[in-house]
């Protein structure tokens, strides 16, 4: 599919015909200590108790989960918390065939996998929650679609919690069909 250009065939690169070109290969790593802050921290702590929290904008009322300090639309600080889900309806799926690396670990992800948007119970419109689908269920789910008045319902999903939970995204292993 991809036609690779041959460097030596190109008129623009005419000076290096006889020279060995050396490429230095380095893995660069600087350890980081990411703060969660009080807002993300409260959300992550709740995951340990198998609860999913959203933060609510005091002006427009929209829910955000994972939560953020401010509502970007209203430019005000979010203060109120609401528990959402943990069950919901699939609204979006990225069916990923491309094996991309996880930049936090450097490891390639196993393919195929489904990165999904779930409208957790208690949420509406664009308030979807981003996580992964149980790989065995990739071919068995439908995504719900809203186009103006046209609404189709997506597959009901529930979280599968990790045995050991530390307050991280990995506390939810993935979402699976809720039947």
């Amino acid at each position: 599919m991809e036609k690779e250009m041959n460097v030596t065939d190109n008129d623009n690169f005419d000076t290096m015909a006889d020279q060995e070109l050396i490429v230095l290969r380095k893995t660069i790593s600087v350890d980081q200590k990411f703060a969660t802050g009080p807002v993300m921290g409260k959300f992550l702590t709740a995951l340990k108790d198998k609860r999913i929290l959203a933060i609510q904008c005091p002006e427009c009322g929209r829910l955000q989960s994972p939560p953020r300090e401010m509502c970007a639309i209203c430019r005000v600080r979010n203060r109120e918390w609401v528990e959402i889900g943990p069950r919901g309806e699939m609204r979006m799926m990225e069916y990923c065939y491309y094996s991309s690396p996880d930049p936090l670990t450097g490891e390639s992800r196993e393919t195929p996998y489904g990165a999904i948007g779930i409208l957790l119970d208690g949420c509406q419109k664009e308030e979807v929650f981003w996580h992964l689908l149980r790989p065995e269920h990739l071919e068995m789910v439908e995504m719900g679609i809203v186009m103006g008045d046209r609404v189709t319902r997506g597959t009901r999903l529930r979280p599968v919690w990790a045995q050991e939970r530390s307050g991280s995204i990995d506390d939810i292993k993935y979402f699976e069909i809720d039947e």
């Binding site: 703060a35 802050g37 953020r68 300090e69 401010m70």
Partner: peptide
Amino acid sequence: IWQHRFQGMLMECFESIM
């Protein structure tokens, strides 16, 4: 500032200017 993300640090400045 271990207790805040950098977003929280900026938010305080933003709110003060507003």
